[in-house]
Design a protein around this nucleic acid. Structure first.
Length: 254
DNA sequence: ATGGTTGCCAAGCAA
């Protein structure tokens, strides 16, 4: 089973890149964030023709998440908890594995409303997991978390220590969520500095000024079946790219 | 990061 998570920054604008991803990796499950499309306009048929069922929860212009799956699923849910009407969470179950796809808020500087909204979102996700699951179950939580975990996950830790996405409080919130019993799968296979997002501005990609803010988090039973986790940086180098690179994993689930 | 870029949709917001 190959899974991909990717913040595409508009599913319609990025359709050719998504097709390329499918041709290259042939994933079983694809979790998309920032689809930026209302449900009535979601390109469901395009994906169907490529062999994927899709579930999606979107809104006009902002946010929006979707899961594409080659396999039939059950227990489709969206809006897993209250997020001021913002479409940021979606979930399905395939066999006995729960797939949760989330677009965590970007947040803002300390004290701003968006800063608190982000920290509250993290707590609500933790509460949701504790209410509905046990860490002994097969769970995959992936998406754009908008927080870099450690100094190895940002291009300049000193400079960014008070920047959105690397503040102490945000990192504590992410570790607290991991405390449910989730494992950062990329770090099980890689120790080197690595990024999944590069700002569009200031030539950040060319200068490799990035952050690793996209994750595939898995419970222990899923970790034990996992074989590989890779950031596909080449997709960030395409023409008219998303500002995020896709992240994939091979997991012997089915 | 006191810049800067992108996507939404048609001005300015969110990222």
């Amino acid at each position: 089973m190959k899974i991909v998570t990717w913040n595409v920054n508009s599913v319609r604008t990025r359709m050719e890149h998504i097709k390329k991803l499918i041709d290259t990796l042939s994933p079983d499950v694809i979790c998309l964030q920032e689809t930026k499309v209302q449900d009535k306009d979601f390109p469901e048929k395009t994906f169907k023709d490529m062999g994927y069922y899709s579930v999606f929860s979107g809104q006009k212009a902002y946010n929006g998440v979707a899961i594409l799956s080659r396999h039939s699923f059950k227990n489709y849910k969206a809006d897993l908890f209250d997020t001021n009407g913002q479409k940021r969470t979606i979930e399905i179950t395939i066999n006995d594995t729960t797939f949760i796809n989330a677009y965590f808020p970007r947040g803002g500087d300390r004290g701003e409303e968006s800063y608190f909204f982000k920290l509250e979102f993290y707590q609500k996700m933790k509460d949701y997991l504790e209410k509905h699951f046990l860490p002994s179950e097969k769970i995959i939580l992936c998406g754009d978390f908008n927080v870099a975990r450690t100094e190895k996950d940002v291009w300049d830790p000193k400079l960014l220590q008070n920047a959105v996405g690397f503040m102490k409080e945000e990192r504590v919130a992410l570790e607290n969520l991991l405390g449910f019993g989730l494992i950062d799968l990329f770090r099980e296979f890689h120790t080197e500095k690595a990024f999944s997002w590069w700002d569009y501005r200031m030539g950040a990609f060319k200068r490799n000024m990035g952050m690793r803010i996209d994750y595939i988090l898995v419970s222990k039973p899923v970790r034990e079946l996992s074989e590989e986790c890779t950031i596909h940086k080449s997709f960030r180098a395409l023409k008219k790219p998303s500002d995020h690179a896709p992240l994939s994993a091979n997991i012997k689930l089915f």
